[in-house]
Nucleic acid binder design. Sequence first.
DNA 1: GTATATGCAAAACTTTTGCATCCTT
DNA 2: AAGGATGCAAAAGTTTTGCATATAC
Lengths: 154, 154
Amino acid sequence: MKEHDDLKKTGLKATLPRIKVLSIFEKNKDKHLSAEDIFKIMLRSDDEIGLATIYRVLTQFEQSGILIRHHFESDKAVFELNEKDHHDHIVCLQCGFIQEFVNEEIENQQKLIAKKNGFNIIEHALVIYADCTKNPCSCKLGGAENIAKCHKLT
Amino acid sequence: MKEHDDLKKTGLKATLPRIKVLSIFEKNKDKHLSAEDIFKIMLRSDDEIGLATIYRVLTQFEQSGILIRHHFESDKAVFELNEKDHHDHIVCLQCGFIQEFVNEEIENQQKLIAKKNGFNIIEHALVIYADCTKNPCSCKLGGAENIAKCHKLT
DNA sequence: GTATATGCAAAACTTTTGCATCCTT
DNA sequence: AAGGATGCAAAAGTTTTGCATATAC
C-alpha cells in the first residue's frame, strides 16, 4: 500500500488515521485543505476519526515534510502535499479558487534581498489576493459542479 | 487634535477608544501590533478599554484603510499603519523581529503573472521567514532593552 | 435628542492537551 | 507485550456577538 510505505519512510507508524488522511491529500493534489475539511470528508465516507487526531496528524506530517501549512488570509490553517516543487499562490477573493505559480526572477530577488539585509532564508510565502472574474471564476459560471470545483471540499 | 481629524476624514466618529488606538499606532510606526498588544499597552497606561472594542476598532480601521492586517505565521492577526508606501516583510523566526523592504522587480513580476493568468490583483503579501542570527538579532545581543527592541510591545 | 459606540459577559471557532483505551510492531 | 497513537472531553486562545449603558454630534 503506497500510503503505508510512504509513512514508514518518514519514520511514522502506519496507523489507519494517518493512512486515511494521507490518501485524502493524494486524491486532492490540487486542493488546500483545513483540518475541518478533512474531518468532513471522512465523516461523509463513514471513516471514524477524532478532530484532535487530525490536528495531531497534520502537525506531524508538516514536521516530517509530507505537508506544507499555509495561513492565507483566514484564521484557519490549510495544508497541501509537499511536492518539493516550490510554488506561490494567487487566491481568488470571490470564490477561494487557488492558482499556483512559480517565478524564478522573484525567487532570485528574494535571495538578494535576504543577503543584503543579513538574513538566512528559511522559507517564504507569496500570496497574491485577486479577483478571477476575468478568468472567469467558476462561481460566476454557475452550476453545482462549478461551485464545487471552486471551493475546497471533495 | 491630529487623531481626531484623521478619524473624521474617514467618516468615523472620533470616540475616545478610537483616538487612543490610533495614537498607539502613531507612536509605534515600526511595529506590528496584535489586539492583545494594544490591550496590554492601554492597561499599562491606565486607559480603560474592552478587548471587544479593540477588535471592533481594528476591523473598522482596516476597512477604512487606516490599518493593514497581517497574519504572518502565527494564529493571531497583527496590524500596522497603512502608510500607502507598500512594502513586504522579513520575519525572524527566532525573535519575531520584522524587517520591511520593497523591491520593484518583484512588484513588476507579480503584475505580469496576474495578467498572464487572468486575475485582477487586489493586494499581495510576501513574507520571507528567516534567521537574523547573522544580523545579529537583538535577542542574541542580550539585555532587556534589546529583547524589548526585538519583540513587539512598547 | 438620536443614533452610534462601548463594555461586559457569553458564545463561537480553531487548536491543544490530559487521560484512559486501543493498535501497530 | 510494550510503546506509541487514538478518541473523547475539557481547556486554551483568538475573535465575534447580544444587550444594556454611555457618548459623540
